[in-house]
Computed example of a mutant assay.
Amino acid sequence: MSVIREVPFPSPDSSSELPMNIWIDDADSAIDVIDALALSPFATGVQPWSRLANLERVRPDARLRPAEGRVLRTAQVEDGSESRLISGEGWTLRVVRHRNRTATVSVTAVSEELATSVMKESIDGAEEPMPDADHVEMGFWWRGSHGGNRSEKPITAQPWDEIGTNYSAQVRPALGRLMATTPADVNGRLILLHGQPGTGKTTLLRTLAKQWHDWCQVDCVLDPERLFNDPGYLMEVAVGYDTDEDTQRWRLLVLEDCDELISSGAKAQAGQGLSRLLNLTDGLLGQGRDVLVAITTNEDLTRLHPAVIRPGRCLAQIEVGPLTRDEAVSWLGSPNGVGASGATLAELFALRAGRQISPAGADESTGLYL
């Protein structure tokens, strides 16, 4: 049987403050208690100013707290996360650090200036700089219990001139034009990369993020099926967020393996999902925001919904196929293991690593993300 305990907070000292109680039972953890204690000064009005920062690549030795302050609570869990509650004169700080080197820092204070200064002192120099030139920042969206969440992480990405030979000479010119696109060249909002698994569609998107870095922020939506079934989540992702830059950058939303969303039977299978996608690319929803959408699919072009591939809708519509036998032999430096019809990029990497590749017709629906 759960034991429920009511924990009263101190009575307010003025009419501008509000009372607060929390209820704790055996389903709550020590971290839940720290969350409630950190929230109480703001909820009661004792410290009515709040600041929040989400950090990536936090240095192992980062203090994430001002020089002055007293640690009131510390809680750790087995997955490596740690939560701390720290208090100082007129402010309260909550720091949550995760094993993946991300952290959330929140502060409440009696004044806006104090909240800003405590936050600045806590996080200044806490993050490591961006990795070397082989990386690029990419955003990742997912729907949580309180709405959309976005996190930026560095991903490995090579320039186009270093990976061009991974693709057939037949498709290379079209890919080169896509990589060289500038805002002035945009005459469609949808980028469609289709072809069998393992041909390098995901690699292309990483390289595209690098090639377009100066003018376009690339965000990958991890749950596209929820994106187009939840209008609120779609609006949040479509609107994006403002930066401190003088010029608003374009944004590219990446939706991988959305076969059901854009197939010929998508309207019947996915309800309003297809309509909302088209509205995002060239309907009212897409007006006023410089947003592009890139979709990868394993479907053949003839099996896609005609509304998706109609003229004028796509900035690029490219079939990414396997390399021919001659191209595959040249890439590998040997004919061993290369079939008469050539090979996909995933198969060539497997052959180069000394692994056997799946025979033609085998299920390649997973594990071939390149």
Results as ranks from 00 to 15, higher is better:
285 L>D: 00
294 A>Y: 09
121 E>N: 11
20 M>I: 02
294 A>S: 09
86 I>L: 13
174 A>F: 10
18 L>Y: 10
249 R>I: 01
96 V>K: 04
79 D>Y: 01
40 S>G: 03
327 E>I: 11
154 P>H: 07
311 P>I: 14
168 S>E: 04
120 K>D: 13
234 L>P: 02
140 F>W: 07
127 E>W: 01
290 D>V: 00
110 V>F: 00
31 I>Q: 10
160 W>R: 05
87 S>P: 00
328 A>G: 00
95 V>H: 07
172 R>D: 08
54 N>K: 10
115 A>Y: 01
184 A>T: 09
302 T>S: 14
146 H>L: 14
339 G>S: 15
264 S>L: 12
52 L>D: 10
367 G>S: 08
91 W>C: 05
185 D>F: 09
219 D>N: 14
275 S>V: 07
237 V>H: 06
278 L>Q: 04
151 S>A: 14
75 A>P: 08
220 C>H: 14
52 L>G: 05
87 S>W: 04
148 G>N: 05
296 T>R: 11
125 G>E: 02
277 L>S: 01
31 I>A: 13
208 L>R: 01
334 S>G: 06
364 E>W: 06
216 C>R: 13
111 S>W: 01
100 N>D: 15
56 E>F: 05
237 V>N: 01
75 A>T: 01
362 A>P: 07
104 T>P: 02
176 G>P: 05
255 L>W: 06
283 G>E: 03
160 W>M: 04
201 K>S: 11
225 E>H: 12
28 D>Q: 11
192 L>C: 07
29 S>V: 08
234 L>Y: 03
291 V>T: 14
40 S>Q: 15
144 G>C: 10
163 I>E: 00
239 V>T: 11
177 R>G: 04
204 L>Y: 06
337 G>T: 08
233 Y>L: 11
8 P>G: 07
329 V>N: 01
128 E>H: 03
249 R>S: 09
211 Q>H: 09
22 I>C: 14
348 L>Q: 01
232 G>N: 11
306 P>I: 14
245 E>N: 11
159 P>E: 04
260 E>F: 08
8 P>K: 10
151 S>I: 12
195 G>S: 03
109 A>S: 09
230 D>A: 02
214 D>F: 03
231 P>S: 12
